[in-house]
Design a protein around this nucleic acid. Sequence first.
DNA 1: TGACAAAGTTAGGCAAGGCTAACTATACTG
DNA 2: CAGTATAGTTAGCCTTGCCTAACTTTGTCA
Lengths: 155, 155
Amino acid sequence: MVAVKSGKLSASLEDYLEAIFNLAGESNVAHSKDIAELLDVSRSSVTGALRILKKKGLANYRPYDSVTLTGAGRAAAAEVVQKHNILKSFLVNILGVDVDIAQRAACKAEHTLGPEVIARLLCFIEFVTRSSKNGYDLADEFKQFCKNKLQDNRV
Amino acid sequence: MVAVKSGKLSASLEDYLEAIFNLAGESNVAHSKDIAELLDVSRSSVTGALRILKKKGLANYRPYDSVTLTGAGRAAAAEVVQKHNILKSFLVNILGVDVDIAQRAACKAEHTLGPEVIARLLCFIEFVTRSSKNGYDLADEFKQFCKNKLQDNRV
DNA sequence: TGACAAAGTTAGGCAAGGCTAACTATACTG
DNA sequence: CAGTATAGTTAGCCTTGCCTAACTTTGTCA
């Protein structure tokens, strides 16, 4: 019974997980300092978060050492990252939202949308991809449509 | 200079505004008790929130009296409500998400998505409506596509 | 090898937002 | 009009999550 699914994680903790996941990459380890910089947070806040993640069985952490994620931690992080990517892809590739704005929006919404919504969003992306292969470029059609509309309304 | 645009509101305060707006309806007034019930929060939390909304010039509030929104408050609330409705409409009518799940998702995401994203989402809804008038029922096509997909993945 | 810089931790504090319990005001009803 | 139920408020507390300042550990290099 290693990986207790201890309830939902806060948005903040998910951010830390995501940061560690992204920083770790191949090497598998992340450093407090980099986490702090990535999340724009003080080093002491990182220390606090790591202790909580450890307690929840999501991170391997010992004072003054670098961090790795446990299996459960990696799974949880991967889920968040996946949500992020799906959201961003939808926003950029289908809605045509500016990349930076989409990035920021995805960073927030990734914590609020449940699996049902994310699954359908992913499905929708596939649907659009499929239809573009079949000769109907929905995203592009929409971009045209949207350009006029948004122009009218000065948004 | 009545309506100071005093920075962004927290998700919590937006929830209170939205609740008051929805409860007020025609009558224009809302009662603490109903706000508390709607938001599933204690009455004392409502009192605290109302004092803040008053301070921000968003609510007309006097102890032991019912609440109304100021012009600025109504505008801010309407914006949140609009985001909510756009999101919910997208989730239900295009993605085919279950109504209750969509409702809950919209309640959260309404606080995190900026005007650029919302504007495009609205535009997308119009786009889909338009194309259905032109004989291509995109939402329905997607529902078919999705049904198979999601079945396969047991989501 | 020892001194210094960089990384990490600890202590203490703050703000937001929620809670319960106890109190006050209001309003309804006999 | 008195008494009680209901609505609203206040006081005091808790949790989350962040901060700064001061301290400790680690690692590097002269």
